[in-house]
């Protein structure tokens, strides 16, 4: 580094000499290069002024005292800029460190929250979840019960970024710790609400649908904690129906009771769950209506469930001016033989 700096000092000297003689563009371009190299090597502004003084004295041994004093004055004036520059350097380094920590955290979150899609008799499952930023505030989770039932959670943590992601892990481990007997959707939400209300920052909350599928009765039982409504696709009449639910988001009040709802599935019926990230994306200022999501699902209804959810994401990704403002999560369950 010392060598580089030294050669630049020599360079500065000859460029200045040239410029004083000719006022040429070449020298100006040259000094621009030199100054970039100084920056790279953390040379402070006052050091450059100091260099300038030395070069001037070499070139003009009879330099007037007044000019010399004025240069010393300029040197003093540059010192604060030097301190700022050093601060920026430190901040840059800190930012790099934080960035790399976040990416470690993001990949850790991915591992922690990894949701395998289980195979359930007579049920086809498709799921996609795409974060808008590095860390995902959406979450889905499947649990397969001993008697062949399926437990499904879809959630959106409000409050973005790292705090939201940390909260997600808390939820996952709380769900995992419940014994199988108490997997009824309303019980799960009531328990989770207490966990979230006690542990979370006052402006953070979670919306969630917890559903349980019972293969023997082909019945889906679900409860909603303030979550975007799901949809039921009835194959027989080729129509979607909103699954109307009531229930307060998790973490708002300490004691909340949730209601249970049910829908019985016939062959090729579907249930669609999503997070509001899906409907909060905007197309050139226009909101995407949920109808559009359902239209795309209908268009691909003869494809496997996983392909349908992929196609919906692709459809919105392709839209002009598409901007993923929020995490995007979509789950489709389809009754099969």
């Amino acid at each position: 580094m010392g060598k580089v700096v030294h050669s630049n000092i020599e360079n500065y000297k000859s460029l200045l000499k040239n410029y004083i003689a000719n006022q040429d563009e070449q020298s100006l371009y040259g000094v621009d290069m030199v100054s970039k190299s100084f920056l790279k090597n953390n040379i402070l502004p006052e050091e450059i002024v100091n260099l300038h003084i030395q070069v001037l004295q070499e070139l003009y041994p009879d330099l007037s005292e007044d000019i010399k004093h004025s240069m010393d004055f300029l040197l003093e004036a540059m010192i604060s800029y030097g301190i700022k520059q050093q601060e920026i350097q430190t901040l840059k380094e800190q930012q790099m460190a934080i960035k790399s920590e976040i990416s470690v955290a993001a990949s850790m979150q991915e591992t922690l929250l990894k949701a395998d899609i289980p195979s359930i008799d007579g049920l086809e499952i498709g799921a996609i979840s795409v974060p808008a930023h590095q860390m995902n505030g959406d979450y889905y989770h499947f649990v397969k019960g001993k008697n062949g039932t399926l437990g499904l959670a879809i959630a959106d943590v409000i409050g973005k970024g790292i705090p939201a992601a940390l909260c997600m892990s808390m939820i996952k481990y709380a769900i995992d710790s419940y014994p199988e007997e108490s997997m009824a959707p309303k019980m799960i939400l009531e328990n989770l609400n207490r966990v979230v209300e006690r542990n979370v920052d006052s402006s953070m909350f979670i919306t969630m649908i917890y559903a349980q599928y019972l293969p023997q009765s082909r019945r889906l039982i679900f409860s909603s904690a303030g979550h975007e409504p799901g949809y039921y696709y009835n194959k027989a009449n080729d129509r979607f129906e909103e699954l109307k639910t009531k229930g307060l988001a998790l973490g708002v009040l300490p004691d909340v009771q949730y209601q249970e709802y049910r829908v019985d599935l016939d062959q090729d019926d579907m249930v669609i769950f999503l997070t509001d990230g899906v409907t909060e994306c905007r197309e050139e200022g226009q909101f995407i209506e949920v109808d559009e999501v359902l239209d795309v699902i209908k268009r691909f209804k003869d494809h496997p469930a996983q392909e349908i959810v992929n196609q919906v994401y692709k459809h919105f990704e392709r839209l002009q001016g598409f901007q993923l403002r929020d995490d995007f999560t979509l789950i489709i369950l389809r009754k099969k033989v």
Binding site: G159, K160, T207, A249, D276, D326
Partner: peptide
């Protein structure tokens, strides 16, 4: 208003 805005009103409500 997105859900972050809702968070502000929830925390105001608690307060």
């Amino acid at each position: 208003m997105d859900s972050t805005g809702l968070g502000v009103f929830i925390s105001a409500l608690k307060s």
